[in-house]
Design a protein around this nucleic acid. Structure first.
Lengths: 103, 103
DNA sequence: AGTATACATAGATGGTTGTCAATATGTTTT
DNA sequence: AAAACATATTGACAACCATCTATGTATACT
């Protein structure tokens, strides 16, 4: 997973409404109308958000008649998790660290 | 950590240059000039990115003379990780799930 | 066939973002 | 004091974003 892909996923998750959607999907797939009931947005806005989440690969959908069932793409999400968890954020920050500028 | 805070952190991480910065900081603190050498941006642009990363609490800095040493705020990052890991992305997607619309 | 429902698309709008050049501020060195 | 260095701020600009209204498309129900 490239850095650009991670950036795209982060961008998709950088909106509170889309985070709410992901939270809802984390308990299992939901149809659009069900998501719409919870969020304070119009239907076209929800449609836009679902497109953003789908385009970055985070969410996949399954059509059944007139209903679209959305769910988190677990493989894709696992790759993202892996990237985040790999950021170690070293605690032992040596205060006497040599700077690049000490020439 | 509120959903808005997570969204802000995601927004800060939604740029490939800033992700690169975070990757570099994950191996320990770095001064601005050191980050600048790696990235293909001007100094004001780097300064802007560091402000974005600082404003969301992801990065903290330590001033030593004319050098600013940046590092990942491990507590803040841990909170973010916790949120991400908590998203379970349920694999058992019951195909016969009852839709909200079955009235 | 006609109506209702679920979702997508198009177009508009106000706000935000990443980037740069120019300039300012503060620190170290000579 | 002057020059060099590290970083921040300002102002500008093109690109992008979240949202809405209006409309289109497709499916299901009566």
């Amino acid at each position: 997973m490239t850095r650009e892909e991670v950036a795209n996923i982060c961008k998709a998750m950088s909106d509170a409404n889309r985070l709410r959607i992901i939270e809802m999907l984390s308990s299992g797939e939901k149809c659009g109308c069900e998501l719409l009931e919870e969020l304070q947005v119009t239907q076209p806005t929800l449609s836009h958000h679902m497109k953003v989440l789908s385009d970055c690969g985070l969410v996949s959908s399954r059509i059944e008649g007139k209903w679209h069932h959305y769910s988190i793409s677990s493989e894709r999400f696992a790759d993202y998790k892996e990237y985040i968890v790999a950021i170690s954020c070293n605690k032992k920050q040596n205060k006497e660290v040599s700077c690049c500028c000490n020439k």
